[in-house]
Simulated scan of single mutants.
Amino acid sequence: MSNNEVTFKHLSVEQLHESLEQGKYVVVDIRDPNSFEQGSIPHSNHLSNDSIGDFLRDADFDAPTVVCCYHGISSQQAAQFLISQDFTDVYSLDGGFTQWQALYPNDIAK
């Protein structure tokens, strides 16, 4: 694998929850706006086709960035997209917001 073939990594909801208070990760949520408004991982940023330009313009490309979707499937494609935009440390959240909600019902931002 050459240097230009960097791929995203996987992160469990437990790993993210353990380090959330430390602000170690930038969390981006790619679910639909209504779902995001209903509840999200604390301190996460909603990322949509409308906001991606602003996010890319302002982003720290070296910050550990975690992509969250519903179940951890769509986030993999989005994580690979961020890698293609020169992000260096990107994770797909395994289990997505559904698993976060199941394990940490008291840690949801509304």
Rank of each mutant, 00 (worst) to 15 (best):
P42M: 01
P42E: 00
H43K: 14
H43F: 13
S44V: 04
S44Y: 03
N45A: 05
H46M: 14
H46R: 11
H46K: 11
S48R: 04
S48N: 08
S48M: 09
S48P: 08
N49H: 11
N49E: 10
D50A: 14
S51A: 09
S51L: 09
S51K: 12
G53C: 04
D54G: 15
F55G: 05
F55I: 06
L56W: 10
L56M: 13
L56R: 09
L56E: 09
R57G: 10
R57W: 14
A59Y: 08
A59K: 07
A59R: 07
D60Q: 13
D60P: 07
F61I: 12
D62L: 13
A63Y: 10
A63G: 09
A63H: 10
T65F: 05
T65P: 08
V67G: 01
V67M: 01
V67H: 03
V67S: 00
C69I: 05
C69S: 06
Y70V: 11
Y70P: 08
Y70S: 08
Y70E: 11
H71Q: 15
H71V: 15
H71P: 09
H71I: 15
G72D: 00
S74D: 13
S74P: 11
S75R: 03
S75L: 06
Q76M: 12
Q77M: 15
A79N: 05
A79Y: 07
Q80M: 12
Q80E: 07
F81S: 05
F81M: 14
L82S: 02
I83S: 02
I83R: 05
I83E: 01
I83V: 06
S84T: 06
S84P: 05
Q85A: 08
Q85N: 12
D86L: 07
F87R: 01
F87P: 02
T88S: 14
V90Q: 04
V90N: 01
Y91I: 02
S92A: 09
S92Y: 02
S92H: 01
L93W: 02
L93R: 00
D94P: 10
D94M: 10
D94C: 12
G95Y: 06
G96P: 05
G96I: 02
G96Q: 02
G96C: 02
F97I: 07
F97M: 06
T98H: 11
T98A: 13
Q99M: 11
Q99P: 06
Q101E: 13
Q101C: 09
L103R: 15
Y104M: 03
Y104P: 09
N106M: 10
